[in-house]
């Protein structure tokens, strides 16, 4: 179909249109060839959203004596209610979650999973619903430290060997006089701030918020230091389901219900 103009050697515009159309048809055909149908019509028909999770990660999901609870569990229930669906949970090991989704044992994963760009060929992620990245925690009323750049000539507490420790060491190469003080646990690092041994602590968003929930003398700065976004995961062909999940998340966000669920498990 691609003919060259014998005089100019250039392809005719009309021919390009035809070839572009063919290319699009080819892409559509390839997409259809994966042999899978969208899960959304079946979910609507059955009225059940099948959610996969690994119930060993409190406070996001944990099974205590047969009773499942956690932030992700509440979020799934809230989204189910918003979409007019019942929610059926299935348990998998952490390393088996994506396989369970790929083999259509569940419709969606909601299990504190971080968006992984390398998996985007086979899976699609929702908008993030929580950032578990590193946060900077200071004493209530602290005004001199509002970000990492304010930590020159100050002491920063971290959990020994944790990702926050690596991050802090990187900052110490850029900030003059920043002392990185490691502690055995995140709780000890945060206690050091509470007791005035350190000016701030850098910890992950989960441990940090859990500690703050029970220790009102501390607070965290406005902007997270790193980003580790948790999202729902669906199979790549389930774009219709993903649209509905994203719409539902947006409604829960604007109604304040998402923040209420997060606050329930991690504090305000």
């Amino acid at each position: 179909m691609l003919r060259k103009n014998r005089k100019t050697g250039r392809l005719k515009i009309a021919d390009w249109r035809v070839s572009s159309l063919l290319f699009l048809l080819l892409l559509t055909g390839l997409a259809a060839c994966n042999g899978r149908e969208s899960a959304w019509p079946r979910i609507q028909q059955e009225g059940v959203l099948r959610v996969g999770l690994d119930p060993t990660y409190p406070p996001f999901e944990v099974d205590t004596g047969g009773e499942l609870s956690g932030l992700d569990v509440d979020l799934a229930q809230a989204m189910g209610a918003d979409l007019g669906l019942d929610v059926a949970f299935s348990y998998f090991g952490y390393d088996g979650l994506y396989d369970a989704l790929a083999t259509e044992q569940v419709d969606v994963l909601l299990s504190a999973l971080v968006i992984d760009p390398a998996r985007r060929e086979d899976f699609a992620y929702s908008e993030p619903y929580f950032n578990a990245g590193q946060i900077l925690i200071v004493r209530q009323g602290e005004t001199a430290v509002t970000s990492m750049t304010d930590l020159a000539n100050r002491t920063l507490a971290v959990e020994l060997g944790a990702q926050s420790h690596v991050e802090a060491l990187e900052w110490s190469r850029k900030l003059a006089g920043l002392t990185v003080q490691p502690y055995t646990t995140p709780e000890e690092a945060l206690t050091a701030v509470l007791q005035g041994e350190a000016d701030a602590a850098l910890v992950d968003g989960i441990n940090g918020r859990l500690f703050l929930r029970d220790n009102p003398g501390l607070t965290y700065t406005a902007n997270p230091v790193t980003v580790e976004p948790y999202a729902l995961v669906v199979r790549i062909e389930d774009s219709e389901l993903l649209d509905h999940l994203n719409d539902s998340l947006a409604r829960l966000q604007s109604s304040g219900e998402l923040d209420a669920i997060i606050a329930k498990w991690l504090g305000e």
Partner: peptide, 15 residues
């Protein structure tokens, strides 16, 4: 020292 792998330990323990 993965934060949620069931066969992991805390980073300080790992060291």
């Amino acid at each position: 020292d993965h934060p949620r792998w069931t066969l992991a330990v805390r980073p300080a323990q790992r060291i």
